[in-house]
Design a protein around this nucleic acid. Structure first.
Ligand SMILES: [Mn+2]
Ligand SMILES: [Mn+2]
Ligand SMILES: [Zn+2]
Ligand SMILES: [Zn+2]
Lengths: 143, 143
DNA sequence: TTATAAATGAGAATGATACTCAATTATAAA
DNA sequence: TTTATAATTGAGTATCATTCTCATTTATAA
């Protein structure tokens, strides 16, 4: 998806929800699509500030929520007390392998596991809604 | 394992580590083995207080750490900001299914998935150390 | 322009958990 | 049993990410 299309989609969503298009909101969207990584709110806040747009932490959090709520971003909990956000645009579902030493994050997908999860849920009469699957260990460099 | 054996093992560990056997530490161990659930620190703190032993939150946290460090308990992060603790005694590895509505927690094991995780780690040149696998959805009663 | 509802940001609040340190206590030596 | 002492405890404070508050600013549409 082109950045122009994305921006226009975002504006449409804001309009549809009765929200205003502000430079702060645009800046957060731009940060999320610019860097494909798994970023902390603080990083995004700093990146925006270090450029031109005046923004507050509160607004970054609020905008990230909007992005997550509307399918532009995904929020991850890696268990270290700080949420990470990654773009969801052109990014199908995947899970993560995290290095306990250097924090490197690698993405993986395994259709077999995805299928099995559904079966396990069914066995226990659960209607599956989401899942968290994270592998932790030492990356090649950190072993 | 009998509770007597457990208690004696715990005392041995404390001795081995140069730690003292205190009524507070014993009380936390007793709580962890009494209730097989997935409990918050606050629950354990309240349960101990409501009995006889005087204890503080700080000591409950400190003792839970000792228990986790020494293989008596397992600490889980369910993504809601409060850690859960469960006994690890006579309790082999398993993962969890959590109801998004009522919070019910069901345990599951799947050897296929366990094996695949190892393979995925290997493919990415990771040495696997732990993993988190949590399925979230609606339980039978909450659908 | 103007009216106004929504957004922003500075700073305060929150909540789980960790830390501090003076008072207490378990332990082992005498 | 007494004593010496290092470890433990607990009340309260600190921390840290995130959320909330509310006075001021701004985007939007008439
Ligand atoms: Mn990812
Ligand atoms: Mn369990
Ligand atoms: Zn690494
Ligand atoms: Zn339920």
């Amino acid at each position: 998806m082109t950045n122009e299309k994305l921006l226009s989609d975002f504006k449409d969503v804001l309009k549809k929800e009765g929200l205003k298009v502000t430079p702060q909101r645009i800046a957060v969207l731009e940060e999320i699509i610019k860097d494909k990584g798994h970023r902390e709110s603080e990083d995004i806040y700093m990146a925006i500030k270090s450029r031109k747009t005046h923004v507050s932490r509160a607004t970054v959090y609020r905008t990230l929520d909007i992005l997550v709520q509307n399918g532009f971003a995904r929020k991850l909990n890696l268990g270290d007390g700080r949420a990470r956000y990654e773009t969801k645009i052109d990014s199908p579902h995947h899970d993560h392998i995290i290095c306990n030493e250097c924090g490197k994050i690698i993405e993986f997908v395994n259709d077999e596991i995805e299928k099995m999860q559904e079966e396990i849920a069914k066995q226990h009469h659960f209607k599956l809604q989401q899942h968290i699957h994270q592998l932790f260990g030492l990356c090649k460099e950190c072993q």
